[in-house]
Design a protein around this nucleic acid. Sequence first.
DNA 1: CCCCTCTAGTAAAGCGGTTTAGTACAGCGC
DNA 2: GCGCTGTACTAAACCGCTTTACTAGAGGGG
Lengths: 338, 338
Amino acid sequence: MSNRRPTIADVARHAGVSKGAVSFALNGRSGVSDETRRRILDAAARLGWSPSHRARALSTSRAFALGLVVARDPELVGADPFFPTFIAGVEKVLAERDQALVLQVVTNPAAEEAGYLRLAREGRVDGVFLVDLRRADPRIALLEEIGLPAVTLNRPDVPTRFPAVILDDRCGITAAVRHLAGLGHTAIAHVCGPEPYLHAIARREAFADAMTEARLPAGQVEQGDFTAAGGRAATHRLLTGPDRPTAIVYANDLMALSAIAVAAELGIRVPDDLSITGFDDTDLAGYVHPALTTVRADARGWGEVAAQTLLALIDGQRAADTTLPPAELILRRSTSAP
Amino acid sequence: MSNRRPTIADVARHAGVSKGAVSFALNGRSGVSDETRRRILDAAARLGWSPSHRARALSTSRAFALGLVVARDPELVGADPFFPTFIAGVEKVLAERDQALVLQVVTNPAAEEAGYLRLAREGRVDGVFLVDLRRADPRIALLEEIGLPAVTLNRPDVPTRFPAVILDDRCGITAAVRHLAGLGHTAIAHVCGPEPYLHAIARREAFADAMTEARLPAGQVEQGDFTAAGGRAATHRLLTGPDRPTAIVYANDLMALSAIAVAAELGIRVPDDLSITGFDDTDLAGYVHPALTTVRADARGWGEVAAQTLLALIDGQRAADTTLPPAELILRRSTSAP
DNA sequence: CCCCTCTAGTAAAGCGGTTTAGTACAGCGC
DNA sequence: GCGCTGTACTAAACCGCTTTACTAGAGGGG
């Protein structure tokens, strides 16, 4: 009388059928009568059997898992609200399909490709999420070469057969600029994210385009890095430079939040002397003084759709690009007329 | 000429040995001569072979993966800096041992136990991290019953055989109270975390003990929930109540940060009229105005040691409790003499 | 020279599923 | 009665490793 887990053979014996029949019954395939199927499922339930994921994985050459590798600087890894929320959305889909998420967090960018290679080589996952796309992202070619299915968050700048799940960032920035221009601002600056990231570039371009559209002179653009320290430095340059803007559009909340402090130290009042907008709508954004006008994107929904798309792709369906509702501007108190 | 992945049989054929010999050579076991071992490893390298994780998992009944299930309210899931950082530490250890991390994020607390059960039933992981311990945490019994190895972050309040990785929170709070008392504060309040969490309780007790130790009257304690909204509400109650404290010790940064805004709205200056301390040392903490005095714990190191401990436990070593350097107070500008 | 032990290696049996090839039988048309 | 088709099911191969049981041969002791 051992208490090892029951196997398919135990179920077969109890139901008086072969292992194959149990497998068929379990997977809802034809070749077993309704009566027999019921008997088999009964026996399985009675024994508390559920198929061994490991055995299944070996015999079907599938991992039943999806991968996500996140590359982040150590100081930024905890500050970014996107990932946990995105992952929560992914999980919602995976849980009900008995799939798992294997996560890799690398703080060293060099380790990123190694991460994907490891996931692929070990056959840990059936597909991966490609986030934080960069200019001419080498991961696209890498994944196509090793034949690992992927979905991208937004469209890469290189041709690819991977489906994209698109959530338009740009129009959040556009809305912010329009909002500021509508308030009467003309000297509007932008603190962008680091160069290689496509979302940083997209936001910067959206800023430039919106300025043009509003018939305003091209605003100053300062380089940030999505960290509070970087946001502080960029803001300081803008506020102490020759042409002090009356409004600044930030590429994320963390930088915008740190700007409020810089302004306070310089005796510049927000929003009276300086309007500020963020991006992300972090939990804190609505609870600082003044509450931050910011752009909100549905990270959770993004995760859900990305997971569905990736699973469909792995199932062999020709997955098409999906477009989600665009990011929207949340008006709060950090913006006002100049 | 197929281009399927090479298997152990291919390597064996090329090296002119049996599959068993390859397995022995790979795993560094005795029974192969140095000469043969070299020949085998050569052949493996030439073929670009690495053992199939799936096959290994099935034949050894191991998953070569560790699990983490994070239960968080939707609004808090992105705001907590602890997890990503902790996970980065875990990964550092796992990567070099070819182990994976499977993550589950559940926003519904009821789904938490189901999460562990699923990981266990499907044999997805060999062990799990037990974080956010609660009073009389039911997960301990659950995991002991299903026989899934675990390590706990700090010690639970119920007896258990699972090793704990201990990082003393309390002394960070103690240091904060001492610091404030040393500055001359006597009316010090605490905004604690939600009831069931052991770390919230520990911080609250540390606060109470430190107040006693400083020979101060027991300070007011307001219930928070670790969110900005909760912090705001608690702070508002304290600052508009009958005995307005001159200093408030918060159980996390997010609540402390939102307090700065509440104070500003009420015309209370920080730190002149009100001193504030946080907990976590989030990226933003040093970049708000005034910069936040807070408590820093090494989440990354915690992750590393927790992973090492869990792997040792799974390997059958009797893993002992480990104690890490305690949390330390980081002095900034949000505290001053009353 | 014989027996014993030790080393280096092989063959084959798992691990627990899926899947393919094959079989037994019923039903049907003629 | 015979061949044909379709259904329900079984036996066995297979996925790619690990591990056990066994063997051949070398070396050593007496």
